[in-house]
Simulated assay, not measured.
Amino acid sequence: MSVTVDIWTDVNCPFCYLGKRRFEAALEQFPQRDDVRVVHRSFELDPTLPHDASGPVTEHIAQKYGISVDQARANEQGIAAQAAEVGLPYQTEGRDFGSSFDMHRLLHHALAVGRQDALLDALYAANFADDTALFGDTDRLVEVAVGAGLDESEVRRVLDDPDAYADAVRRDEQQAAAMGANGVPFFVFAGKYAVSGAQPTETFARALQLAWGEQIVPLGTESADACGADGCAVPAASDD
């Protein structure tokens, strides 16, 4: 017996970064973990961004939510604190954002050659733990992919062909829409149990147990942190 966990994410999404670590903590403790297959699916937070779009994250957050840059920086500090709780580095200054479509295409290529999880980890690290620009720079993306164990010539072949894996990305996004997923991270266990948002590790552990035992009960809460088409939830400002 085996269980497949499909996870819709976007490299732009900080809660996808946190959610992956919390899920992995649950998977590590799961007795049947060797029989769990994890597949990362594509979800673009903003599919309208131009291919070469890039810009500072803090200014983008401030503009998107109509808040000050200082408030945006405070929001980044709050996410960094959550990341630290699960042992993840988080760079609050100097990061950028942009179109993730080519990254999703590469993740499908990486799935075909058995390096998908390694590539996703490398992309998260490049985006959230490094202040070197990631988006809109093909050479930087190639560098990250090669560092994750992919062949450079194959990576460049995929990136040079805009049609390579493009249909696979769109199918993932259409599937997410059909299931009513309007934000990420979005986890589907055994094709039937959905967990939305960067839930606590205990929720993922329960989902794994239920998927293995084929029982149906509601999972998680609607209030968990997530990113959607309108962006990532901004924590309420403290009065302190």
Rank of each mutant, 00 (worst) to 15 (best):
A112R: 15
A112E: 12
V113D: 06
D117C: 10
D117R: 15
D117K: 14
L120V: 14
L120W: 08
A122R: 01
A125R: 12
A125M: 06
A125L: 10
N127E: 10
N127V: 04
F128S: 05
D130Y: 04
D130S: 15
D130F: 01
D131R: 13
T132I: 03
T132P: 00
T132Y: 00
A133Y: 02
A133S: 09
A133D: 09
L134E: 03
F135V: 00
F135H: 07
G136Y: 04
G136F: 02
G136H: 07
D137W: 02
D137L: 11
T138Q: 08
T138M: 05
L141F: 01
L141G: 01
V144P: 02
V146I: 07
V146A: 09
G147F: 08
G147Y: 07
G147M: 08
A148P: 12
L150S: 01
S153Y: 08
E154T: 10
E154D: 14
V155T: 02
R157Q: 10
R157E: 06
V158T: 04
L159R: 03
L159Y: 04
D161Q: 09
P162S: 08
Y165M: 06
Y165A: 04
A166D: 12
V169R: 08
R170A: 11
D172R: 05
E173S: 12
E173A: 12
Q174H: 13
Q174V: 03
Q174E: 15
A177M: 10
A177V: 09
A177F: 07
A178W: 01
A178M: 02
M179E: 13
M179L: 15
G180R: 09
G180H: 07
A181F: 15
G183N: 11
G183M: 05
G183P: 08
G183W: 05
V184Y: 05
V184E: 08
V184W: 03
F186N: 02
F187E: 01
